[in-house]
């Protein structure tokens, strides 16, 4: 089976998806949603609501316990192992804990997805240098993650997630360790990618960002998902903020 994105197919389709870890309680319950190509969503919910689990289904780390997940038009449970690997190369992930490899330099960390994809070294050098300069780390390319600040590590993690222009970008609290100015700058990077056609899902607690950008959100509450459209969300947020009830 070819893993080229099917034309006009939704980037992700969840139909009646439930998920639990081995023998544990149900983390996600009857999830139903579709991500259209080029869409931008925030994902919100309390800690433990299931955001990370939902993201892990999106980046193919787990299969659902019940229901069906289709990515780029393909049912993930029916795919061959090799095809799943190819599909993953179209997905960029920013992890909450960064997951940088401490024995590699910032440059080599960012270059990793390109090396896995078999890109030529000359191209890798050019693209990685440009991107690291863009996120303000041009002077720290040869620095190892333990020597970088939390914010710098986060920028390396983001650069690594976007270096191969993914079709789907997933980010778990990508602005948690940077100041507001850098958070907005990074969100603009995600927006630029989104304009180029990348579908973006950002899990965040940063209400300021959500308000500022106003994109629709996927809200998780005790494993149940509700999709709040952009306008409805703006109205809801406006009411909440007028009452002073949201942070």
């Amino acid at each position: 089976m070819s893993t080229q994105t099917k034309l006009n197919a939704p980037v992700a389709e969840f139909n009646g998806v439930s998920f639990r870890y081995d023998g544990g309680p149900e983390i996600l319950k009857d999830i139903q949603f579709t991500l259209s190509p080029g869409s931008f969503h925030f994902m919100t919910g309390e800690s433990g609501a299931g955001k990370t689990s939902l993201l892990s289904l999106l980046y193919l780390y787990h299969l659902p316990t019940k229901g069906r997940v289709r990515l780029f038009g393909y049912p993930v449970d029916e795919m061959a192992r090799l095809d799943r690997a190819k599909l993953r190369r179209q997905i960029g992930v920013v992890f909450q804990d960064f997951r940088l490899l401490n024995h590699l330099t910032a440059f080599d960390n960012v270059a990793l997805p390109l090396r896995i994809a078999g890109v030529k070294e000359s191209e890798i050098r050019r693209h990685v240098s440009e991107l690291l300069a863009w996120v303000g780390l041009e002077n720290q390319m040869k620095t190892h993650p333990p020597e970088l600040s939390g914010g710098e590590q986060q920028r390396v993690a983001i650069a690594r997630a976007v270096i191969n222009r993914p079709t789907l970008l997933l980010a778990d609290e990508p602005t948690g360790n940077v100041d507001d100015a850098m958070a907005k700058r990074l969100l603009h990077l995600f927006l630029e990618l989104n304009k180029l056609g990348t579908t973006v899902v950002i899990a965040t607690h940063n209400e300021g960002l959500i308000r500022h950008f106003g994109f629709p959100r996927l809200h998780l509450d005790k494993g149940h998902l509700s999709v709040v459209p952009q306008n409805q969300y703006k109205e809801m947020a406006s009411k909440l903020f007028n009452r002073g009830g949201a942070q």
Binding site: R89, I91, V93, L101, L112, I116
Partner: peptide
């Protein structure tokens, strides 16, 4: 590391 590389699309 293996888990991370696997998630990035490295085949076996």
């Amino acid at each position: 590391i293996i888990s991370l590389i696997h998630m990035m699309g490295a085949n076996d």
